[in-house]
Design a binder for these strands. Sequence first.
DNA 1: TCGCCGTGAATCCTATAGGATCTACGATAA
DNA 2: TTATCGTAGATCCTATAGGATTCACGGCGA
Lengths: 228, 228
Amino acid sequence: MSDHTAAMPHRPRRHVLADEVYETVKTLVMDHVVRPGARISIDGLARELDVSPTPVREALARLESEGLASKEPLRGYRATPLLSRRELDELYEFRQLIEPWAARRAAEKIDRHTAAELRAEMASAVAPKGTDYRDYRALAAHDARFHSLLARLSGNDQVRIAFERTHCHLHIFRLYFASDIGFEAVTEHRTIAEAIIRGAPDAAEEAMSTHLDNSRTQRLHTVYRDSS
Amino acid sequence: MSDHTAAMPHRPRRHVLADEVYETVKTLVMDHVVRPGARISIDGLARELDVSPTPVREALARLESEGLASKEPLRGYRATPLLSRRELDELYEFRQLIEPWAARRAAEKIDRHTAAELRAEMASAVAPKGTDYRDYRALAAHDARFHSLLARLSGNDQVRIAFERTHCHLHIFRLYFASDIGFEAVTEHRTIAEAIIRGAPDAAEEAMSTHLDNSRTQRLHTVYRDSS
DNA sequence: TCGCCGTGAATCCTATAGGATCTACGATAA
DNA sequence: TTATCGTAGATCCTATAGGATTCACGGCGA
């Protein structure tokens, strides 16, 4: 956020093990190294990461309250199961309430500085060369950053926080895992970004709504083609 | 939630200290026993509650990720400051995106069973006799339950969770602290509930929108009358 | 008077130990 | 074969100890 001010952070961002463990476990869950629904042993994880159980407990408590793990007292933690089709649809319904509105607001408030931010993010969305995992992961990271940026550019921080707390991109990434679809999103992002930059609220709102609907129906629903 | 099924819970809800500490601290923060912005010492709290620091750390990690406390590494936790006027307005803007929609959906989906739930909740909203703290707290509890219930009756659990995670009623309660305003809300709740029960989506949506706007402008804004 | 510095106490962070509870698995009985 | 029971091991939960860092405060110099 304010890290670009200078190369001299007044507080060198102190090192705490719990934060590292948190990030590590989050990545493990995201990449299916810890499979959906699998147990996450406190002592086992502590041995694996070569730390004591205390910071592990702290990290898992955070993950649980964010909905990435679930806890049963005296029985331990589990990685959250994958989103069901119903949960996915509900999640997109929520996003439809929030994000088109955010895109509209961003277009209304656009200025020289925020436009530059938006252009920079779009420039980072490199066209993937193949269909390998690293490309998919990079694209997913851009997708997450793009939507977070728009939530921020809406100017309403409470909305941004509520959106971030869904961790929707993490959940969707887990669904898509080992899949090679979804690259069309960048084109739709460009449409949204252009509408915002030229200050067109109606176009921005509609483009976002369309984008979400395409993402849900044309891309994600294929995941459930022969199941629930 | 499902506690009314029988007097024989298969898992007797095991006892974990971290959960108790969590609830205790949450109450302390809500009631200004721990003042907004005040430090929350891990070891100090452990001594006070006569438990070890380990469960305290777990409870505070949860509270931080829920936005009720903030942490600076190696420096400790603090209770979140009161909502600024700007944050309050942004929070209500968020609620306007979610709750009128939820009220509409609830009206569309209403049935015999959910109508009974709604009536039961309205019956619990006893008219306060005086302006003392206990009455205020009971009213605030009803307010929180009412809005949570509507979020649930929308049928979209992701929306409900996103709403719950704002902890808006806890934050508002802290603002209102030692205040005696806000009893008009029950009347507006009744209007909303009646619209939902008679299956009138438009009326329900509008009543909720009006209710939120009244709450914000006529009641809450008086808190900031001579400050930011 | 004001600001800087050093020391002691308090606090945070991590690791470890041990009791409580749960899980896995094999033995016994129907 | 199937179900029940009991034991061993693993895991969770809590408490405690000690090193690392920060905070509080009094002394020193300008």
